[in-house]
Design a protein around this nucleic acid. Structure first.
Length: 425
RNA sequence: GUGAAAGUAGCUCAGUCGGAUAGAGCACCGGGUUGUGGUCCCGGGGGUCGCGGGUUCGAAUCCCGUCUUUCACCCCA
């Protein structure tokens, strides 16, 4: 019986795995050089952990199950609740600020489509315990540090930045009642994702006052902070976003960043700076996004401590990098391939190979003592840097070492060869 | 969860007014007489045409269902 892979999942054959490793190694490397430490949690948690932050409707998007003790559990669709739980558990003993990162494997029971699968990897970084906007800048820098490192330029991607505080202030200025804010955020978040007519219709439904609706529409279309100041007067939240932009410029990533009031983020828990990273052509869904969530740890039963962070998934990013020709792989690398001219040298092949391996050199050999030309082909296929050819000269304790890149070869005494290797390690 | 399109070898695809042993390129395996790879030449294996049912003398081809993929919704933590 043939069993197909589960809907929305991927098999990682060695070439795919090489790409995945390259991608994730890059995330980890950049996290570490930005001063973040890696953490991880279990891949399943209590179902209710995921309801605290996102509500009941999210349960439909979860892979959930009962364990044998009747506990309601779910495979993690995000790692932020786990982060909150872990931080809260040891809040008093953790040195502040907490700068942690993780690359969790996540599952969401959504309908797969371009750039969205049911199982994926997501790079998360978070700074907990700093309410300075500098931390938001550092988080954005960290994302761009990676994206720039892999070769994406300001012509390829843009970080659209706004502020929940600013949005709240403007909506208050406009006269929107406080109780309509959350549902309005959800709608505004969709502005660029819906056809204009549909957005208009939904906006009018939520906000019958046409004067208010008009002002909101005008606000969403603004491109600079000073325009907002002209239209709505100076707001306290301005300083914060001006400072953020200033930091990003000083950090050298200002040309990737753009103020954009239409960035809202759908989730209710964001409290300050919010941002989303898009491909410049806007043909793909968001590459990633994040923002400040100062109340979240408290909601998870912890202390009142500020936090900011982001998440970037592997699916959309891979598509973009592939399109730009920037996707690299890290294929199999062999230091040595040990070949022999005929069957009589098989024992020597095994002996030499294992000795190389014991000295920490990646080495391989052919199970069948096929023709030397075939063995060399295998060596090429496996990207061996060098080949050791064992033939008649082995009887005089000599090895033939062939450089597969340069094509040169030389004979060397066995003991001398291994002595030189040791000095290399 | 809703709607649309697609599914033929490991991959990219050809093949349908319904007709005989279903093809190509790439990949894979083997060979090209003495101990040298990344090129070339020759040969080979591999498909119950996604799966199940129906119509028909006969189905890869037509119809229905189902699964998967892709696209658009819902959603996007």
């Amino acid at each position: 019986m043939k069993i197909p892979p589960v809907k929305g999942t991927r098999d990682f054959y060695p070439p795919d795995m090489a790409v995945r490793n390259w991608l994730i190694d890059g995330w980890k490397k950049v996290s570490v050089r930005n001063g973040f430490e890696e953490y991880d949690g279990p891949i399943f948690e209590y179902l209710k952990m995921f309801q605290i932050k996102s509500g009941d409707e999210i349960v439909e998007q979860l892979f959930s199950f009962k364990d044998r003790g009747g506990r309601d559990l779910a495979i993690r669709p995000e790692i932020t609740p786990t982060l909150a739980r872990m931080v809260n558990q040891q809040i008093n003993s953790l040195p502040k600020p907490i700068k942690w990162f993780s690359v969790p494997r996540l599952c969401r029971a959504e309908r797969p489509q371009k750039g969205r699968l049911r199982e994926f990897f997501q790079w998360n970084i978070d700074i907990i315990g700093v309410d300075d906007v500098l931390a938001d800048a550092e988080v954005i820098f960290c994302a761009l540090d990676y994206l720039r490192d892999v070769g994406l330029t300001p012509d390829d991607i843009v970080v659209k930045i706004s502020s929940r505080k600013l949005l709240a202030a403007v909506l208050k200025e406009i006269g929107v009642p406080k109780e309509s804010l959350d549902s309005l955020y959800a709608l505004l978040d969709k502005k660029n994702k819906l056809p204009p007519e549909t957005f208009e219709k939904m906006l009018n439904e939520q906000l019958p006052d046409s004067e208010m609706a008009g002002k909101i529409r005008a606000f969403m279309g603004l491109e600079t902070i000073s325009q907002i100041e002209e239209m709505f007067g100076r707001q306290e939240a301005f300083d914060e976003i001006v400072t953020l932009m200033d930091w990003l410029n000083r950090m050298g990533v200002g040309d990737y960043c753009k103020f954009d009031p239409s960035v809202v983020r759908g989730l209710a828990y964001y409290t300050g700076i919010v941002f989303e990273i898009y491909d410049k052509a806007s043909e793909l869904r968001a590459i990633g996004g994040g923002g400040r969530f100062d109340d979240l740890l408290k909601q998870f039963g912890g202390t009142d401590i500020p936090a900011t962070g982001f998440g970037i998934g592997d699916c959309v990013l891979s598509i973009l990098l592939e399109e730009k020709g920037l996707l690299k792989t890290r294929p199999q690398q062999l230091d040595y391939f040990v070949a022999c001219v005929d069957e009589s040298f098989r024992d020597a092949v095994i002996e030499v190979t294992m000795r190389l391996r014991s000295n920490c050199f990646a080495s391989n050999f052919s199970y069948k003592a096929v023709k030397l030309s075939k063995q060399l082909k295998q060596a090429s296929d496996q990207n061996a840097q060098k080949c050791i050819i064992i033939g008649e000269e082995f009887k005089d304790n000599q090895l033939l070492v062939k450089d597969m890149v340069a094509g040169e070869q030389k004979t060397i005494e066995v003991d001398k060869f291994f002595a030189e290797l040791k000095s290399l390690v």
